[in-house]
Amino acid sequence: MASPWWKVARSEEVTSAKPLAVDVGDQPVVLWRDAQGIARALEDRCPHRRAPLSRGCVRDNGWLQCGYHGWSYDGESGRLKEIPNMKDEQRFPPVYKAIAYAVAESGGFVSVNLDKASAPPAPVLDETFPLNGTAHVSLSQGEWVDTLFDDPGLVLDIRGVQFTPYLMSELREENGLLVMERFCQWGKLHLPSYATAEFPITLITRTRPDTGETQAVLRDDSFRTLLTAQIAPVAAARGVTQVRWRARLGEELKGRHALALRLKGSFAVRENVDAAALRVLIRSASHRAQQLREAILPATPVSSDPSVSPDSSVSAAA
């Protein structure tokens, strides 16, 4: 089974000015841009004396130079290219290399695959998502995704939006994705949700069963899209989840609540999860999530939804 592509950075975060340290689970990875502007990824461990390569620098020719003794590596192959002061003897046996990972970039995200031989993901449609951010959450990736299913308000913050416990459509499989739709309200202006007859907005989420990557769409009762967000929760070291997201507003926003989404900071992934509320959150929508994942993963190819990268053979996320 092929290993999944993880969206470990937003495009803006990967530069040729400074290497970026990220991780996929407990595997540290260093990212940077080479001289052609191509994003590169190596294991964040120099094979010389095991120092983190992310504490080094990017050279003008695009090689990554370790900050300890200055060994330089080529990003594509991971091969050692230069040892300082070695003068003309810069030829090294093939084992002189750092581990290089497969990198793909599209839709404003840089993705890494720990299996170098993986087929690149198909590029997503060229849409711009100008709003973007990164949140670190001290919750495991699996629990984060389940919380998104059970109460998005604990992990997402959308200006003015109250997520209700009422689903328009419970979690189900659709084109290889886990899809659900939840009723929402604007602020606290309405009756309590249990006594409300009609809801003005809904949140639709489409989640990849392997990586938890989710497209979230906020829609009003006239079927206008108010906001679309791409959310990529990636398991990082020590059980932390790094969530990268990009969002854009709908073209037609009607009503003062919808218009208020134009204000800065109208979408965010929460850095802090209310642990007291989380503990007592009843597993409802997520209850069947694992069964659904297992049903989808070996069988169906994932759809080519613009939010997520299709990949003909995906495996279960760790």
Partner: peptide, 18 residues
């Protein structure tokens, strides 16, 4: 450099240092 190095030398690593 030596602080992140240190734990990477706590267990035998089959990968040899270059």
């Amino acid at each position: 450099m030596t602080n992140p190095q240190s734990p990477r030398y706590m267990d035998i690593d089959p990968r040899k240092d270059l």
